[in-house]
Computed example of a mutant assay.
Amino acid sequence: MGGHFMLAIRLPPDIESRLDALAKATGRSKSFYARQAILEHLDDLEDIYLAERELEDVRAGRSVSTPLEEVMKAHGLED
């Protein structure tokens, strides 16, 4: 299986119980649902991380923001 790897994670007991119950009720594996959760939320987690890092850079003066009005004017979108 090229390109795949195993990942072991520790879950709180209540989450493990919920995942186990879902797997038993549906006949799918716990790994299936863990993989689905990661795939569905990874984009959001990346976006949050990048936004937080950019905000830190702006606050520290390492990055400069542009007012929305300037961006809209530059692209001919002003009212």
Rank of each mutant, 00 (worst) to 15 (best):
M1V: 08
M1N: 10
G2Y: 14
G2D: 14
G2S: 11
G3K: 07
F5H: 15
F5E: 11
F5M: 09
M6P: 10
M6H: 08
M6Q: 14
M6Y: 06
L7D: 13
L7Q: 14
L7Y: 13
A8S: 12
A8N: 15
L11S: 10
L11Y: 08
P12L: 11
P13N: 11
D14E: 08
D14N: 07
I15T: 06
E16P: 09
E16T: 09
R18W: 04
L19C: 01
D20G: 10
A21N: 03
L22Y: 06
A23N: 04
K24A: 07
T26C: 04
G27S: 02
G27W: 01
G27V: 00
G27P: 05
S29D: 00
K30N: 01
S31D: 07
F32H: 09
F32D: 05
F32V: 01
A34I: 01
A34V: 03
A34S: 06
R35M: 07
R35A: 13
R35Q: 10
A37Q: 00
I38N: 04
L39M: 07
L39F: 07
L42P: 05
D44K: 06
D47N: 11
D47Y: 15
Y49M: 05
Y49H: 15
L50K: 13
E54Q: 11
L55N: 15
E56M: 11
D57G: 14
V58H: 06
V58F: 15
R59S: 08
G61P: 08
S63K: 15
V64F: 07
V64I: 06
T66D: 02
E70T: 04
K73W: 05
A74W: 04
H75T: 02
H75D: 02
L77M: 04
